[in-house]
Design a protein around this nucleic acid. Sequence first.
DNA 1: ATGTCTATAGGGTATAGA
Length: 259
Amino acid sequence: MRIATFNINGVKARMETVLGWLDEAAPDVALLQEIKSVDEAFPRGPFEDRGYNVETHGQKGFNGVAILSKLPLEDVVRGLPGDDGDDQARWIEATVVGDRAVRLCCLYLPNGNPAPGPKYDYKLAWMERLAARARDLLAAEEPAIMAGDYNVIPQDEDAARPEAWKDDALARPETRAAFRRIVNLGFTEAFRTRIRGSGHYSFWDYQAGAWNRNDGIRIDHMLLTPQAADLLADARIESEIRGGEKPSDHVPVWITLDA
DNA sequence: ATGTCTATAGGGTATAGA
């Protein structure tokens, strides 16, 4: 089973790019972030025409997540538990059953800038709620993945210019510590099981020719429970698409599971 | 060089968010 996570930066503005990508790369599952669409306006038809089941959790204007799957999606849950007052659409999860059942969690973690401030407080609080959901997933002792745009640069090696991000909400020590607390509960960060070292990014700003200068950061991640990590066959970043027509500022991150 | 892009409101061109 080949699973990709992809922050597409607006589904309606990105249809040609995303459909071309699906036709070429043909993931079994695509976890999408920043659909920037309410559920009723999500253009399901072209995805369904390509054989994908579609589950969305959107809101007006920004944020929004979706799961596309060639296999049926079961037990869909929308919203990260832990704060009934949080109306931002940043979490959707569902189970897909191939050779094995895999719980898929698609997340769009808050950016948190400017930091410090209320947006950063929201980011850290959201990460605490994520940790709680993560503990429950581990307790289930089943294959599960939490994948998406974490808006976290885990280490200096994950940025072309780490000094430029030192005080940013994506790289501050509190952010990195909160991310490590989740990973250290017992998750495997898929990409780093396959590729070590600097120079591997998943986001390049639209501004200042960041792509052409390879001035990127690695902020899109896939965290696997031990039972999912047992099934991990490959992990990679598909960076080439960033140089294509009308690209998102993020690129897809992939895993292959023996499931 | 804070240099770009998307969505919204509203009906031109501003603002927010990233």
